[in-house]
């Protein structure tokens, strides 16, 4: 009646028993692991070198295209200014992302629970999404007193929709047999939401979150460009604009590289979060043996 003997872990073959095929595969995997980091680094160095050579060979003036050395000098020399700017942009981005999560997931749950609310609000969520934020932003800054609030609103408008649509999809993608099972056991609406729909929606939500992370940065940058410099202090995008007026191209590149780094950081952090939450059970986090 018991399966125990059948389930007993098989004796591991001795280390010497690894055959040639297996050894080859492991060697290939090792090579790939190293190449994953080495190749992009080599690519970066080569690009920087080529960039430098082009500037030197063609004697391009630095107010047209500065070499990487000048960009690096600006990055270190203007670090205080740039770092403050990055903090501001980063803060707006993260706050907008947090609001996008609350707003997007909250709306998705609300829509899921009430068809009437969904029918009345969904079209407007779509309209908000398809209207380019650059064209709404100037209006926002007319009506919203606080610059911070205005920027947050801009970034939120861009970022919330992927969370909303992917979470909605997730809430509706519950395995129909599980749904029946919950019905048979007389689960309440709340139990169904909490124990069935939300866990089912989690992978979808996390997918939307990754997109929203990038979009909230875009939203924050666009908002800064529209809001212009001055006022409470300037973010990275405002610094780029300002440096552009002064033909300080090196600083433009320096600020740009910081924005890019910020985007990469957000993506990496959200990917890690997603991995940690799903690694135990979701197919996407399943490590295949071969």
């Amino acid at each position: 009646m018991s399966l125990t003997d059948q389930l007993a872990p098989e004796k591991m073959p001795g280390a010497g028993a690894v055959d040639a095929d297996e050894a080859r595969r492991q060697a290939r995997m090792r090579r790939e692991r190293i190449a994953r980091w080495v190749l992009p680094a080599v690519m970066l160095l080569a690009t920087l070198w080529l960039w430098d050579r082009i500037v030197v060979w063609n004697e391009i003036p630095h107010y047209i295209l500065p070499g990487p050395d000048r960009v690096w000098a600006s990055l270190t020399g203007d670090w205080d200014i740039l770092f403050d700017a990055a903090l501001l942009t980063g803060r707006i981005t993260l706050m907008a992302l947090a609001l996008a999560v609350i707003g997007g997931a909250g709306l998705a749950i609300l829509f899921n629970q009430s068809k009437m609310v969904e029918l009345s609000l969904y079209p407007y969520a779509v309209i908000l999404q398809v209207t380019p934020v650059v064209s709404i932003a100037p209006l926002i800054f007319i009506y919203v007193e606080s610059k911070t609030a205005g920027m947050l609103l801009c970034a939120w408008i861009v970022a919330f929709f992927p969370v909303l649509s992917s979470t909605t999809l997730g809430l509706n993608s519950v395995d129909h047999n599980l749904r029946d099972l919950f019905r048979i056991y007389g689960a309440s609406r709340w139990q169904k939401l909490w124990m069935l729909q939300l866990p089912s929606a989690l992978p979808y939500f996390l997918g939307g979150l990754k997109i929203a992370g990038g979009l909230s940065l875009i939203g924050a940058v666009v908002a800064e460009l529209v809001a212009g410099t001055g006022g409470v202090g300037a973010g990275l995008a405002a610094r780029i604009q300002e440096a552009g007026y002064r033909l300080n191209i090196a600083r433009m590149f320096a600020a740009l590289s910081m924005i890019a780094a910020m985007g990469v950081f957000i993506f990496a952090a959200l990917s890690l979060l997603s991995h940690l939450l799903l690694r135990k059970w979701h197919e996407s986090a399943l490590k295949r043996e071969n």
Partner: peptide
């Protein structure tokens, strides 16, 4: 009553014990 479907119909995010606990949890 208890029901068994053609597919195992387990909650992938829950452990084996939590899956078996489900009918009680819902009560």
């Amino acid at each position: 009553l208890g029901v068994v479907f053609q597919e195992p119909t387990l909650m992938p995010w829950a452990t084996v014990a939590d899956n078996v606990f489900l009918p009680f949890r819902l009560r």
